[in-house]
Nucleic acid binder design. Structure first.
Lengths: 224, 224
DNA sequence: GTATGATTCAAACACTTGTTTGAAATGTGC
DNA sequence: GCACATTTCAAACAAGTGTTTGAATCATAC
């Protein structure tokens, strides 16, 4: 059954890639776990890279379409623009829910994503950027309205702070400090905390970027 | 000359590991860059893992001792406890300065650190935890005084948000969104922004953890 | 049934990996 | 000079890598 082994290969590869990394995982281990023959990978996906691309594309499309759906809903209510908290929720919640929901592949996908970035494969990077950057650009544009004082460049790398925090929260692949996956707090709770954390950080940056700082006292009250 | 090739191997390995990852970099490439013989690695470091450990230890000790030195200074002024901003500076600035200073190996080390975490080598993880976690514990203890409302667990994974943002800021190894290393903003500036970002986020979390929320209005004022 | 295409399979291919070996070279102390 | 340990080197080793091959199996249509 053709589609069956294709699917089993994808599942096995996702699981093993996320645990061991892409370049580190041998094809033979994947095919063994999938109960398929070694040559099946090259038959169905052309090459190992082709398999990796397909594994990533499956989940990435799912995640990004969910994010954009939420963003569309927020922008549809066009009488009042979306708040920063709402935008951050639309960006963060789908990722965390997906990373914690075993039915969707659990946190495997996110670990895999982090690993894929860490690997230096240029083709893989280009592939990921093509499937990712347009979403981030749309969110950046939407957020710039909620953060009027920050210019584009400033907002972009503050958003990188957020993405960095999100990635760590999802993957927790360091294990050097906390151990979220042991505690297993539900995704919504962590998302709430991360949204508040990011909103406060971005707002503080926005306030600091203002030429006159009317909220300066409030920041001192909070951050001092 | 013994110490010479040892040093050249370490330098070459650090450079290549940070660009390509540890498991992905062949020993032959390292020895070629170092102008040494292939067998030199096993002679001087016992194995490839031994070389990787030594590469990491060099920089990690340097970074952590700088962090702890600053923390000691803050705790020495024992009449007034350190502020959150000061503690975050002590944690963040050494890492960012090191990551940007070419004389210290540039951002190579940080990329390497991120890669080392991404790789699934259990021995390497254990090694990193042993050389890292005690520093984070000391900072967590110091910060809990500046954030009286948060309990230990809460603080710990909010600190993971900070470390995640810091790692991304240092490594910028995603390249999927912003490109800090193209802009080359100086480390102190980025550190300032990240400290403010993290301080605001942590303070907001602390305020939200308080049973009665007197600063709740201030947060609304900031976080929209 | 047979013919045709899609899929599976065991085997081999060419290549790279980290490590080991044992002899040469170099340095060091006397 | 000699003796001795340290360091370098070319070569080979065993194991693992992704990919290819060509025959065998299966499904489907006629």
């Amino acid at each position: 059954m053709a589609a069956n082994t294709r699917q089993k290969l994808l599942d096995a590869a996702e699981s093993l890639f996320s645990q061991q990394g892409i370049t580190t995982t041998p094809l033979r281990q994947i095919t063994e776990l999938a109960g398929a023959n070694l040559a099946a990978v090259n038959y169905h996906f052309g090459s190992k890279l082709g398999l990796a691309r397909e594994v990533l594309r499956r989940r990435l499309d799912e995640l990004n379409s969910e994010r954009l759906k939420r963003l569309d809903q927020l922008e549809a209510q066009d009488d009042k623009p979306a708040t920063l908290d709402q935008l951050l929720e639309a960006l963060i919640e789908p990722a965390l829910i997906m990373s914690r929901d075993d039915a969707l592949g659990g946190m495997r996908f996110v670990r895999l994503l982090a690993r894929a970035y860490a690997e230096n494969d240029r083709e893989l990077h280009r592939f990921l950027r093509e499937h990712y950057s347009h979403v981030m650009r749309r969110f950046a544009r939407a957020m710039s309205q909620a953060l009027p004082e920050m210019d584009a460049a400033n907002l972009r790398w503050h958003l990188d702070f957020v993405i960095g925090a999100l990635t760590y929260a999802m993957a927790d692949f360091t294990g050097h400090f906390s151990h979220m996956n042991q505690i297993h707090i539900d995704a919504k709770t962590i998302a709430q905390h991360l949204v508040r954390f990011a909103a406060a950080g971005l707002s503080a940056a926005d306030a600091a970027a203002a030429p006159s700082t009317p909220t300066g006292t409030a920041r001192t009250l909070l951050g001092g």
